[in-house]
Design a protein around this nucleic acid. Structure first.
Length: 754
DNA sequence: GGCTCTAAAGTTTTT
DNA sequence: CTTTAGAGCC
């Protein structure tokens, strides 16, 4: 392999392998390049085997992309065997393998955030605490913060000193935390934080297990080290303690996840912790113009306690950061849209070269409207994930329950849907017995008589019918792959029937999403068989999806569209033209963060990340008035605008003159409809969703009663009614084989048959 | 036990 | 303005 395409610092970082090293990688300095080259170098030159190298990232996407790049250097085969992935995906594997040490079944379930919240809600209720004070999200974030710091329930008081004032209003968090852990254990479940906590416990309590992995992973690399929390820090420390071959890469200036437990001191103190650690600084920015790099530098210079570095660019000088003032949020959005229209018209820039970034998702609305008005195609990243959707969670709950019948949250979800005459009262009784007898909900429900469940005969019968249908599937599950089981579940559970029978027009999109999920399972099964040659189990599939987010789904359809997203979501990406909107006090910086220096510094890093996404041009805008939470708010320009050195900023006093803001132009550019898509995997939007144009097919414009039509799923039918509703044109169709259905014209993939 | 209406609340979110 | 969660009704 050759390192000739690397600069001196990059090369040095790649080739140094004598001991711990810290690579401080400024924005756009070729961080991923160094990591990929280093991993290839370790295999090709140092002679390590792929499985001896552990490379940890924060997203599946980052891991996947890096793996691909390494594959092109050293070949598919070698790249495949690297222990490369997210912290969670790598350590969940170890936990499954070593579950016997941890009082955990090997088929343990992974609870996602909503499962955790739901469990906390139950606990708060059972403990008769005020659910206004003990809001599930608030309690979970307290528990999560404790877990990130490796504070177990027993030790919660002592170490949680910093949260005493918060605790005054919620003194029982410790008790809820203890109960929560108990219930997780009973359900055979772990939450996201547990994956790291339990790994630490495993390594701390069983030195022989730790040693096994220390011996296996001869070299450990960590990406985005500035975002690690204490639990992650401890794991790395333990694994590297024997051989000290560890390389962490990151940028303290881009640490923006403190609210999730990321501890910037991990990277700030790395050299001390791993002394004598070698430090490499990648300071040449290959992404942005000099002007933008200097502007960003002058902003971040206001932060204290940074690792000293001077990021520079040898690219073109470029233009200053453009600062624009708008009267209102609407005008701001309009100006951005106008500017985008102009950019694509008068320069070589295409829509895909442009991103609009904001501090909070709520700002996307006005931008969406403006984009639509200008006929600009756009994609919004973020929003609800595919796997968070109710219909998908419902299906997955059945699969989870099959794999792990103790799974409490899955049980509650399944028994509740589709409706089968088992309600809250019955469930409470089941819970009561389950708790006193120390057995699972499923166990009680399947033997209501044996456990003297105080319910009437029909209810007992319904409970048994429910559990028996699942047991039936479970019985021949061993001979089937994940896909086959899923198909069976859909038929047996009654989900598909319930949706097909539903008069709700949303049911159709639910069905399509479920179809999509099935397709995903099939894809997974095929991929596993082909790549790993192993029969994919349902348990393996469920673990994978539990650790998946929609950001991991490479979408094929965001081809040439303007990207709208939060600054957080933009981290790691780059665009020739970047607009950052809503630069007002109380918004960016956020009002929640203006109190403390740390808060402000994090917000400042956030803007630093935003500006450094831009390659050529960066626009910052603020609005004097903004419609927020139903009220018009008047804000001041963000302090951060003043903090950027004047030499790198160009102010535009009013948007009107400098941006050709005029109504005439507005109508000139507007086009009837444009295709915009949410960044979700082939997701079908619910009709209730506002984005009326969330689709990639061309919907029928006009349909008349008596028209013969063809539907993808329902087959041939005749239109019997056409009406206008709030959500669009609605048609009633009498299908030959699927009966009568109400469809929304813009969602139904209808074709006219002559 | 399941659906509809009204009230309260409203950052960022790699897993 | 929106969305979501609980109380009330059938």
């Amino acid at each position: 392999m050759t390192t000739s395409s690397l600069n001196e610092q990059q090369k040095a970082a790649v080739m140094y392998n004598e001991g711990p090293s810290l690579v401080i990688a400024g924005a756009g300095s070729g961080k991923t390049r160094v990591l990929t080259y280093k991993i290839a170098y370790l295999m090709e030159v140092v002679g390590l085997k792929p499985y001896q190298i552990m490379a940890l990232t924060f997203t599946n996407k980052a891991a996947r992309e890096m793996k691909q790049r390494i594959a092109t250097m050293v070949g598919e085969e070698k790249a495949r065997h690297l222990a490369m992935g997210t912290f969670h995906s790598q350590f969940v594997k170890i936990l499954r393998a070593e579950s016997s040490y941890l009082d955990l079944p090997s088929n343990f379930t992974v609870y996602d955030t909503s499962d955790s919240k739901s469990l906390i809600k139950s606990i708060v209720k059972e403990m008769q605490l005020d659910d206004k004070t003990y809001k599930p999200s608030a309690v979970l974030s307290r528990i999560s913060a404790a877990k990130n710091k490796m504070i177990m329930p027993e030790a919660y008081d002592d170490a949680a000193g910093a949260s005493v004032d918060f605790m005054r209003r919620m003194p029982k968090v410790k008790a809820v935390y203890a109960a929560y852990q108990n219930r997780l254990r009973q359900a055979g479940a772990v939450d996201f934080d547990d994956m790291l906590c339990l790994t630490n416990r495993l390594f701390a309590q069983y030195p022989q297990v730790l040693e096994k992995y220390q011996n296996r992973f001869q070299y450990i690399l960590v990406d985005e080290y500035q975002d690690t929390n204490y639990a992650q820090y401890l794991i790395i420390k333990a694994l590297a303690a024997k051989h000290h071959r560890v390389c962490v890469v990151g940028d303290d200036s881009q640490s923006i996840y403190a609210f999730r437990g990321a501890d910037i001191s991990n990277i700030l103190h790395f050299q001390k912790e791993y002394a004598p650690a070698k430090l490499f600084k990648l300071e040449q920015n290959y992404r942005s113009t000099q002007m933008l790099v200097e502007a960003a530098n002058s902003l971040i210079a206001h932060n204290r306690g940074r690792i000293p570095k001077h990021v520079f660019s040898e690219n073109a000088a470029g233009e200053p950061v453009q600062v624009v003032e708008a009267y209102s949020d609407t005008e701001e959005a309009h100006m951005v849209a106008m500017r985008i229209a102009r950019l694509t018209r008068s320069t070589t820039a295409s829509y895909g070269d442009i991103a609009v970034l904001y501090r909070i998702n709520a700002l996307s609305r006005s931008l969406e409207d403006a984009m639509r008005n200008q006929g600009i195609p756009y994609v919004i990243y973020g929003g609800q994930s595919f796997y968070q959707r109710k219909e998908i969670k419902d299906v997955l709950a059945y699969l989870r329950l099959l794999v792990n019948p103790s799974d409490e949250e899955a049980f509650k979800r399944c028994v509740n849907y589709p409706a089968r005459g088992i309600g809250e009262t019955t469930i409470n009784k089941v819970k009561e017995v389950s708790s006193t007898q120390q057995v699972s909900l499923f166990e009680v429900a399947s033997n209501p008589l044996a456990y003297n469940l105080p319910v009437n005969a029909p209810t007992a019968k319904r409970l048994m019918a429910f559990t028996e249908s699942l047991q039936h599937i479970a019985a021949n599950m061993q001979q089937q792959n994940a896909y086959e089981v899923a198909v069976q579940v859909l038929n047996m559970s009654g989900i598909v029937n319930a949706l097909k029978a539903s008069a709700d027009i949303a049911a159709e999109s639910d069905l399509q999403n479920i179809d999509q999920l099935l397709g995903g399972i099939k894809e997974y099964v095929d991929k596993q068989l082909e790549e790993e040659g192993q029969e994919p189990t349902l348990a393996a599939y469920l673990t994978e999806v539990a650790l998946l987010t929609d950001a991991d789904n490479d979408s094929s359809d965001d081809a040439d569209k303007v990207t709208l997203m939060t600054v957080h979501a933009a981290k790691g990406l780059e665009f020739p033209h970047v607009f950052v909107v809503g630069l007002e006090e109380e918004l960016f910086p956020s009002c929640k963060d203006v109190e403390s220096t740390e808060g402000i510094e994090e917000e400042r890093r956030l803007l630093y990340v935003a500006i450094t996404r831009a390659k050529e041009q960066c626009f910052l805008s603020y609005a004097k008035s903004r419609f927020r939470n139903g009220k018009t708010m008047y804000g001041m320009p963000s302090r951060f605008i003043r903090e950027i050195d004047k030499r790198y900023v160009q102010h535009h006093a009013k948007g009107v003159s400098s941006f050709d803001f005029s109504r005439k132009d507005d109508s000139f550019f507007s086009r009837p409809t444009f295709v915009a898509q949410r960044k979700m995997p082939g997701l079908v939007a619910k009709p209730s969703a506002v984005s009326a144009n969330t689709q990639s097919f061309t919907p029928l414009q006009h349909v008349v009663v008596g028209q013969k039509v063809l539907h993808e799923k329902f087959g041939i039918g005749v239109v019997s009614l056409v009406e206008e509703s709030a959500s669009g044109t609605r048609v009633k169709v009498q299908f030959e084989h699927s009966g009568e259905r109400l469809l929304l014209l813009k969602f139904a993939k209808l074709k006219i048959i002559d």
